[in-house]
Amino acid sequence: MNNDSVINKRPNPTSRIIMWSILILFAVVQIFPLIWLVNFSLVSNNEMFTNGLLVWPEKLRFDNYVKAFIDGHFLLYLKNSVLINVLAVIIVLFISVCMAFACSRMYWKLSKVVKGLILLGMMIPIHATLLPNYMIYDRLQINDSIWALLIPYIAFSLPQGLFLTCSFMESIPREIEEAALIDGCGIYSVIFIIITPLLKTSLVTVSIMTFLNNWNEFMMASTYLNSPKWRTLPFSVLEFTGLYSSNYAVQFAVMSLTAAPMVIMYFMLNKHITKGVAMGAVKG
């Protein structure tokens, strides 16, 4: 059943049972609430009030999902989320590569100061900027525009992006770019044609971290936006609790629905995400 090395490592059957029970217990604790969520999203509102952990519905109520899809503005908010997050990732990558090159390769007096300043941003909590940014965006009349989300999303992902890119760039030998420079390549083409492809691993990590951090963000969104135009996916859930305050089954459906895109993406990119988080966390 198992391969030999596993058996060699754990010869004692009782300790093996204990290990497996620990793993399974935690797995159940972590996953059961989510199973419960999906289960209750498929029942009628009355069936929810029965005893027992899960409910076997008489009829699967997919109409809950239809309601969630339409009244939750699912498509609009999904589009906003995708657009804002993809833009944020691209801009963060671009700025990180530029700054990392300037800070770790080029010669200028303030390079350490500038890098230190941006890295200081890792210590500053997002929520401390909620109040003043609200005022600033209000004055500049960019409340309720894509900029009100894009700018802070970029700014708060930048420190980690810069940090990871810098430490990765330092491991790339300088000879490659020096050869290119001697051949008459400009600085910009050195950065974007020669260095950037070599940074692939770290750029994937930065993208994943930026995406994970910003995709689920809603505090800034709910503070700076006041019309549905640019609202992101978490708002489907937030709005629904008011709209269908007594129809719980539909609320379960909207929650499963809004969780789905990210869960599907996680299953598809499982390996990259695991690696990205591990790398980002260890170095961050």
């Binding site: 972590q30 989510l34 969520l37 994970l212 995709w215 859930v237 809004t258 969780a259």
Partner: peptide, 20 residues
């Protein structure tokens, strides 16, 4: 995969889920 799954789900969903 199972252990990490709750982390990819929005805090908004997690909060309401636990409210329920």
């Amino acid at each position: 995969c199972v252990y990490f799954l709750p982390n990819v789900i929005s805090v908004a969903i997690i909060a309401y889920l636990w409210k329920f």
